[in-house]
Amino acid sequence: MEFIRITDVEKTYPTGVTAVYGLNLNIKKGDFVFIIGASGSGKSTVMKMLYREEKPTHGQIVIGGVRVDKLRNRKVYKLRRKIGVVFQDFKLLPKMTVYENVAFVLEMFGYTKSEVRAKTLKALDLVGLKEKVKNYPDELSGGEQQRVAIARAIVNAPKLVICDEPTGNLDPDTSLEIMKVLEVINNLGTTVIVVTHDRDIVNKMKKRVILLDKGKLKKDFEKGTYDKNEKH
């Protein structure tokens, strides 16, 4: 079943740079997809269009039946509540504990205290950080911080989790750990999209790989690998 449908999408920035053009892509519900490509290939722009940080200049993007490209600015938050986003730099709030970093999302949506507690602990348990709820981000390792960010992304049970270079700041072992966590989430039915440079990860995970080059789709293959010969 199609969950994400990208049709004829083009993105030209106000500076005149065209980052993406003629992009057609379908992603099924429950898929685990890597988007790879060299710097400037347009993969980050595709990501940003998915969580509606950027709007395509042309074409359609549909996520779960919603026309994301037509979404008005003040309605974007409704989309974001259904999507979890994970970044390279974690984006945790340093003055909040691990628990608070995850829980504030639910508090903001108006869940009761007991709901917040149950969901937060469940998400932290899923990423293996239940023991560290009272720690602050700067007391954690990079991998642990990224796991907190993942817990935050999934705490509201989104249908889709988007990760922008999630292992960019992490060593290979930790990176694999993070991927395993994402795989667990994927196995629970969540669609996962990962933008990465990390060849080892892609090769080990053996998932669908979408290769972008100069703003265009170059290759799309199931259980693909990151070919050493591909430019990146």
Partner: peptide
């Protein structure tokens, strides 16, 4: 600014 950005990303309404 950072906190506001994160709130926006996780779906806080304006």
């Amino acid at each position: 600014q950072e906190e506001i950005e994160i709130k926006r990303l996780v779906g806080a309404s304006n």
